[in-house]
Simulated scan of single mutants.
Amino acid sequence: MGDTGTPQTAQEWAKLQQDADYEQARDDGAIPEPETGPACPDCGLAGDIHPTYYHWWIRLEPEDPEPLAAHTVPPRQRWYLDSNGTAWNSQDDEPDPGQTCRISHGLVCSRAERPDLAQWLTARTAASEVRAALLPPQLRMQGDASQSGSQVA
């Protein structure tokens, strides 16, 4: 790599892409090749196995009993399928209104280690506190007055 750490050759760029793909696959809970059957090797439940754009595979929960409203699923846990069956994770992008998504089986597998979504909730709470602190005083006081008003009544 050059002095700035930027890849200089096609091989260096390929290695950088491979490393980035590996890191994303690991974070997403993907596997390097499709498993032989639809059943989870940990719990035995069936799922849908789809390729990803980084050439790994992800086992998704079935859409039954109904698709999940994407806005109810935490960031980095929302999976979508393209028309060719390739799965992709929207990472931190906000879903469109009414959009549905899938989740990985690993997120709900009864016998697998799952990500700690409390970290997501803690981060969202902290962000809300920051946004609330930026509100004009009269808006913050409205919230306080409505609470104290309900206590008086």
Rank of each mutant, 00 (worst) to 15 (best):
A20R: 14
S104H: 10
A126F: 01
S128I: 00
Q11M: 08
T72I: 01
E23H: 15
R76D: 14
D42Y: 13
A133Q: 04
E23T: 15
S104E: 10
Q18F: 12
A126Q: 00
T86G: 12
A123I: 04
P95F: 06
R124M: 11
L68W: 07
D21M: 12
G47N: 09
A14S: 02
S90P: 12
L68S: 06
Q138G: 02
L45W: 13
Y80V: 08
G106I: 06
T72P: 00
T125R: 00
T36A: 05
D82W: 06
S128W: 03
A112F: 04
D116H: 06
H71R: 15
A87V: 02
D48V: 10
T36F: 02
C43D: 09
P51C: 04
Q17Y: 04
Y22V: 08
C43Y: 08
A127Y: 00
N84R: 07
A112I: 07
D92Q: 15
R102P: 05
D21N: 15
S104K: 04
Q99V: 07
R102V: 11
Q91S: 15
D92M: 10
P97W: 01
W13E: 13
A39N: 11
D21F: 14
R76F: 13
R111E: 07
L107V: 14
A69W: 07
E113S: 12
W13S: 01
T100A: 07
E33L: 03
R102A: 12
T36R: 00
A112E: 06
C40I: 14
C40P: 01
A25Q: 06
R131C: 02
A69N: 10
E61T: 14
E35T: 03
N84Q: 15
W56N: 07
H105S: 03
